[in-house]
């Protein structure tokens, strides 16, 4: 049962990165869209993420619930020492969700749209950045539960080059996923071409910021290279990811929507696998050389069992419904049923 819970935890993180990430990325791309194309980009974006955005963000809730029910020590340590980046991320989530709903459901379209748009775009960048910072902090041995002063306990637990670089990397990954996703969501060749170009730019940016993560790791003595290259799983995964990168550029050139989506998803999965495999079962590496482990810092057996059953039972309802939602909004709408309308009360 513990394995079931751990698989769900990893899958929820991956799905949040992929689906939530593409969702954040849509806002990031909007920031880098020329004014002349903005209206069209917003329309495409709304059509693409409108029906699914709330569902995309549920993976974060699933992740957090698994953590606080199954692995409370991990949840509370992160909550205490990463209070500040978590709070900023939460404010970003509030701002982004509401701004997106407001701009599309406000009955009057006027200058308020400028405010909604600005909030949406800025929070779309800030939120994944801090998600990355949090993930980076978890493995950089900067969290010190026994710190004596405020700065060491609550600021320098995350304010380092490595977490910041991971934050930047996350933002570029999100932008990349969004561009890849939107290539298939346009109804004309012009926009398709624009999103293909954006996919190339963001992919390049992701590679560069990925390199920055290595630089930051090197300057802060984080053995990132060893984590990836001293084990077969890491080496295989990273080689496959690099190989698929080449394929991706080729199919991007060809404009094959389904293949590039699969390849992009595959790449991100491989990156997450490499970054998590080496530490497993440890999730948080602490400053004092200790760690918080999924195996050692878990709830009692009955809790884990109940959690696993809840997750499995939930999937029976969620997964088919979710697939149908994602699938059906990819299809062209059928002609509306004609109904004779009556105007009297």
């Amino acid at each position: 049962m513990l394995n079931v819970v751990m698989i769900y935890l990893w899958a929820a993180i991956l799905l949040y990165l992929l689906l939530g990430g593409a969702d954040f990325g849509a806002g990031i791309l909007e920031l880098f869209t020329r004014r002349a194309n903005l209206a069209r980009t917003r329309k495409t974006l709304y059509k693409a993420i409108g029906p699914v955005w709330e569902a995309n963000h549920m993976w974060l809730i699933i992740t957090i619930v698994i953590l606080f029910v199954g692995f409370p020590a991990i949840y509370t340590t992160m909550s205490i020492n990463l209070h500040i980046p978590l709070s900023i991320m939460l404010l970003g989530i509030i701002a982004r969700g509401t701004a997106f709903a407001f701009r599309h459901h406000d009955a009057v379209v006027d200058d308020m749209q400028i405010i909604y748009n600005r909030i949406f775009v800025i929070s779309s960048c800030i939120t994944p950045f801090f998600l990355g910072v949090i993930a980076g902090s978890a493995v950089s041995r900067t969290i010190d539960p026994y710190a004596a002063n405020f700065a060491d306990a609550y600021i320098f637990s995350w304010l380092h080059w490595f977490p910041l670089a991971v934050g930047l990397f996350t933002v570029t990954i999100c932008g990349f996923l969004a561009a890849i996703y939107l290539v298939g969501e346009t109804d004309n060749a012009l926009d398709k071409g624009r999103f293909i170009a954006k996919a190339r730019t963001t992919n390049t940016a992701a590679v560069i910021s990925g390199a920055l993560v290595f630089v930051a790791a090197y300057t802060e003595n984080i053995p990132l290279a060893a984590w990836i290259f001293d084990n077969t799983v890491g080496v295989t995964a990273i080689s496959l990811a690099s190989l698929s990168l080449m394929l991706l550029w080729y199919y991007l050139y060809k404009g094959k929507v389904r293949i590039i989506r699969l390849l992009a998803g595959f790449q991100v999965s491989m990156i997450l696998l490499t970054l998590t495999y080496r530490h497993f079962p440890n999730i948080v590496l602490l400053k004092n050389g200790k760690y918080l482990s999924l195996l050692e810092h878990r709830g009692q057996d009955k809790t884990i069992e109940a959690l696993a059953i809840a997750l499995l039972a939930g999937s029976i309802f969620i997964l088919p419904a979710l697939f149908y939602l994602l699938y059906s909004f990819q299809q062209k709408p059928k002609a509306p049923d004609s109904v004779k309308e009556k105007y009297t009360g």
């Binding site: 709330e54 009692q300 809840a310 969620i318 979710l322 909004f329």
Partner: peptide
């Protein structure tokens, strides 16, 4: 968390279904 987590785990499902249905 480990004691009263059950309703939260199930609520995750209910809330997820709600978001999907709303879409």
């Amino acid at each position: 968390g480990p004691i009263f987590g059950m309703p939260f785990s199930l609520e995750g499902t209910a809330f997820f279904i709600e978001a999907i249905a709303l879409g």
